[in-house]
Design a protein around this nucleic acid. Structure first.
Length: 353
DNA sequence: CATTCGTGGCT
DNA sequence: TAGCCAAGAAT
């Protein structure tokens, strides 16, 4: 079945009526302050509303203006971001705040190109800030847009391929309601998040169902088409929990790898599983170190990585490696992998004061 | 252009 | 449950 996409009418009016009635009550929809819009868009990159919402409140209560953010230290920013992931977003946020204050007098660029030039702001975020804060007629293209438009227009090529991505971006710009770009952009995303969901879309309540090719051909479950598979890398982490005079030793993770600059217990990393004996040899402990326990495996699944961690609890009699920082965990800046670390610490009944 | 960068929720 | 996915950007 061949479909002439030029002949398909996209019912923008239906979508906007639906959005006006059904949109969620979200804090960044009550402001046109570009600073707040910017913060919300960075937080929401690859992040669900439910997950990002508490961080939005925390971040803005701590850094109320771009000047406050520019004045903060990077450690303060990272600590506020702790647990949200993709930490380069936080570093870029801080960098851009300093840039906007020092070079732009604290005023955000008002056009798409200027926004796009900001570190951490790509095509999606520039279009989002431009339309939401300034009413610019620039269509956003995100995962929701790919899904909603691939279904509505019945696009049978993979959204992982550049030509399809360009096609959808072009369609999004064509159908954009130039009178209400902010609402239209958010309406498509809202529809993708609440009705036109990846699995089990609620087509019966969809304002686009009348013209949707996927509905007409009962193809919702097959669209959009993806061609790339996620490959998972397995890594073995052997954390050394070195107690010295009641405190633990930590270090910062190096640049060029996951969680760069965040704090963690010193660790031995391996691509293969190590035996208990191999672990102790690799730890390079000496007679001043008393091994109290070696934990079972903690398996932690990330999107692209499977981390298998074990903890080696050591009572240290002498301070050996001065590169490590001796401190209680929560006095530090953002800690890498907090969820797994806390699972271990809680099981050991360690109190983090 | 392919890969990397987190975390959490869902099926 | 193991994979998939989310208001993407940088390299």
């Amino acid at each position: 079945m061949k479909i002439n996409r030029e002949s398909i009418h996209f019912p923008s009016a239906n979508l906007l009526v639906w959005y006006d009635q059904e949109k969620r009550d979200l804090p960044w929809r009550k402001t046109s302050d570009p600073y707040r819009i910017w913060i919300s868009e960075i937080i929401l990159q690859q992040t669900r509303v439910d997950q990002g919402l508490p961080y939005y409140h925390r971040f803005l209560s701590k850094f109320k203006t771009v000047f406050d953010l520019a004045k903060a230290t990077e450690d303060e920013v990272l600590k506020t971001w702790e647990g949200l992931g993709y930490y380069s977003r936080a570093r870029n946020l801080h960098f851009t705040a300093k840039y906007v204050v020092s070079e732009l007098n604290g005023l955000f660029p008002r056009d798409y190109e200027g926004l796009l030039a900001l570190k951490g702001v790509g095509p999606y975020t520039a279009a989002a800030i431009g339309s939401i804060a300034y009413g610019l007629p620039t269509a956003v293209v995100d995962g929701n847009v790919y899904r909603v438009l691939a279904r509505f227009f019945g696009i049978q090529t993979s959204i992982d391929e550049t030509p399809t991505q360009k096609q959808i971006a072009g369609l999004a710009q064509e159908i954009l309601d130039k009178g209400r770009p902010a609402d239209f952009n958010q309406a498509v995303m809202e529809l993708g998040a609440t009705i036109c969901t990846p699995t089990g879309p609620n087509c019966g309540n969809c304002p686009l169902r009348g013209g949707c090719v996927a509905v007409q051909t009962n193809n919702q479950a097959c669209l959009p088409i993806r061609s790339k598979k996620i490959k998972v890398r397995t890594r073995y982490f052997y954390y050394l929990v070195l107690f010295y005079k009641g405190e633990t030793q930590v270090r910062r993770r190096p640049a060029g790898d996951i969680w760069q600059g965040l704090y963690e217990f010193p660790l031995i990393e391996s691509d293969a599983s190590l035996s208990d004996e191999e672990i102790l040899i690799a730890c390079n402990l000496n007679s001043d170190d008393v091994v109290k326990s070696v934990s079972d495996e903690y398996v932690h699944i990330l999107s692209h990585q499977r981390i298998i961690a074990r903890f080696i609890l050591v009572e240290r009699k002498k301070l050996k490696n001065s590169n490590y920082i001796t401190s209680a965990v929560n006095k530090l800046s953002s800690f890498a992998f907090p969820r797994l670390i806390n699972r271990y610490l809680e099981k050991q009944n360690f109190v983090i004061d």
